[in-house]
């Protein structure tokens, strides 16, 4: 029983990372209908930016601030810089293609290639040696019976829930959120209504990449080893989670991320860990087979 609770808490933490990344996928997909395959690598870049910020700018080799100050300034700085990376990608790679009205798949290929550039550019620039993320927080362990919870786990889970609430609020309650939903509904009529499509799209990229940066920082704090390929696998998996939830829907991405987290952790708890991918993906495939548009997705009606 206690093992089960411990696994649930681990699954919540692991699912939080998937959920945070899946939210970025789903935001961009919801607005642009573009699978931003570079998103996993933006997450990786976010982790590296967090590393750079907390070591070379604010930390021991920069201003030398105390840990709480690094954390307080580092999180927003990381989010802003990562958002900058996402917006740069949009500006350089995706927007010209969109202007030309290129086929959707070509944009997807461009996104894939941008991901590869980020990954291998990082490898070429910083080398293959793994980076050790500094410990920014005193580790506190709270034990209830045999179930132990670290403060970091609580922060990660709370951050995921807060991000979900924040994004849900923005998309459903604010003017810019309404504009985002409008762009996803009809891309051709919206400019006629006086809504600046490009700035809405940039805002979407800011949100998605910013939270990928947050996820990167939290990930680096939880598993303090950084390597250039860490974003690829987790990005693909988060994308699958977003689709299982119903891509384009904020709730779907959130639920899908936690679902994948739970499946993976529970599989590892009861089977040999090499079966993780096999069983997790079989279950997801089954879900998509039964409900082809995902858990929260609504089928778009096709007209002839």
């Amino acid at each position: 029983m206690e093992a089960l609770f411990q696994n649930i808490i681990n699954a919540l933490q692991w699912g939080s990372f998937y959920a945070l990344i899946a939210l970025g996928y789903t935001l961009v997909y919801g607005v642009l209908l573009l699978i931003n395959f570079a998103h996993g690598d933006i997450f990786m870049v976010g982790a590296y930016i967090a590393f750079g910020v907390s070591v070379f700018v604010l930390g021991t080799q920069g201003l030398g601030l105390p840990n709480w100050a690094i954390l307080a300034c580092g999180v927003p700085l990381t989010m802003i810089l990562t958002a900058g990376v996402g917006v740069t990608l949009e500006r350089i790679a995706y927007r010209p293609l969109r202007r030309k009205g290129a086929h959707r798949l070509y944009v997807v290929i461009t996104a894939l290639m941008c991901g590869l550039i980020l990954e291998n550019g990082n490898l070429a620039l910083l080398g293959a040696s793994r980076k050790k993320f500094p410990e920014l927080m005193e580790k506190a362990v709270w034990t209830f019976g045999n179930v132990s919870v670290t403060n970091l786990k609580v922060i990660v889970i709370v951050a995921a829930f807060a991000t979900f609430a924040f994004l849900n609020f923005i998309v459903t309650r604010t003017r810019i959120g309404m504009a985002m939903r409008a762009v996803s509904y009809d891309k051709f009529a919206i400019p006629l209504m006086g809504i600046p499509v490009d700035s809405v799209i940039v805002f979407t990229f800011v949100l998605g990449s910013g939270f990928a940066g947050l996820a990167g920082m939290l990930f680096a704090m939880s598993y303090p080893i950084l390597e250039p390929y860490m974003g690829a696998l987790i990005g693909w998996k988060a994308f699958i989670a977003a689709v299982v939830g119903g891509i384009g829907d904020i709730r779907g991405a959130f639920v899908g991320g936690f679902l994948l987290g739970f499946i993976e952790i529970l599989v590892v708890a009861f089977f040999p860990s090499t079966f993780r991918d096999l069983i997790a993906f079989s279950i997801l495939l089954l879900i998509l087979w039964i409900k082809p548009t995902g858990l929260f997705g609504v089928a778009r009606h096709q007209k002839i």
């Binding site: 693909w236 991918d277 096999l278 993906f281 998509l288």
Partner: peptide
């Protein structure tokens, strides 16, 4: 997903 499943 099929790609991951086959490899795994």
């Amino acid at each position: 997903a099929v790609n991951y499943m086959v490899i795994s």
